Amino acid sequence: MAIAVSLILSIVGAALLYLASPNQGWLRQPLSRGWLPWAAVLVLLSWPAWMRALDPKAGFFAALTVLMLLLGLLPLLSLLRRGDH
């Protein structure tokens, strides 16, 4: 259960960061800049959630790994959605 909460916090935070970017490819217009603080809060809350779900050291690196994966994968998913490959 704790890992699911950690993963949801990471996914939603990373998605909001991406969708507020001017170069995002999912929406016609990016989200307003007012969503950036919420995205940062969710990403920062995912760290202690991961560290509580796992061993603190493993949780820290799991959070980094998941965020790196999400922030690299979200732009690619928008390309697959539009068929621009």
Rank of each mutant, 00 (worst) to 15 (best):
L69N: 01
A15I: 01
A49W: 06
A40C: 05
L45P: 10
L19I: 04
T65C: 09
S6D: 13
L27M: 10
L71R: 03
P56Y: 02
P22D: 08
L42N: 01
L17N: 10
L17P: 02
I8M: 10
L17K: 06
L73W: 14
P56M: 07
W35Y: 14
I11V: 14
S21Q: 02
L19Q: 07
P37G: 10
Q29E: 14
Y18N: 09
A14M: 00
V66K: 05
L73E: 14
W26S: 02
T65A: 15
A58Y: 00
Q24P: 04
P48F: 04
L44R: 03
R52P: 00
L69H: 03
L54R: 01
R33Y: 09
V5N: 09
L36Q: 14
L7S: 13
R52M: 09
W38A: 15
N23E: 12
D55K: 12
L67S: 03
V66I: 13
L19D: 10
W38T: 13
P22R: 05
S21F: 00
L73V: 12
L73N: 07
S32W: 02
P37M: 10
L31I: 07
D55E: 15
V12I: 14
A53M: 08
A58L: 11
P22F: 05
L70C: 05
L45D: 13
L64M: 11
Q29I: 12
A4W: 07
G13A: 01
L54T: 04
L42S: 06
L54W: 13
S46Q: 09
A14G: 04
A58F: 00
G25S: 11
L31K: 09
A39N: 01
A49S: 15
L54N: 03
V5H: 10
L73I: 03
A58W: 01
L16I: 08
A53P: 04
G34T: 13
M68Y: 00
A63V: 02
G72E: 08
W26F: 15
F61W: 15
L16R: 02
N23Q: 11
L64K: 00
V5P: 02
G59Q: 11
V43Y: 10
A14H: 02
I8N: 06
A40I: 15
D55A: 15
W38Y: 14
M51L: 05
S6W: 13
N23C: 08
A20D: 05
W50M: 00
Q29V: 14
L27Q: 04
S21C: 04
V41P: 03
P56K: 03
L16K: 04
F61Q: 08
N23M: 05
W50I: 00
L42F: 11
P37F: 12
I3S: 08
A53D: 05
A53I: 09
L42W: 04
V41C: 13
M68Q: 08
A63Y: 11
S32L: 08
L73Y: 12
L45V: 12
V5Q: 12
Y18R: 05
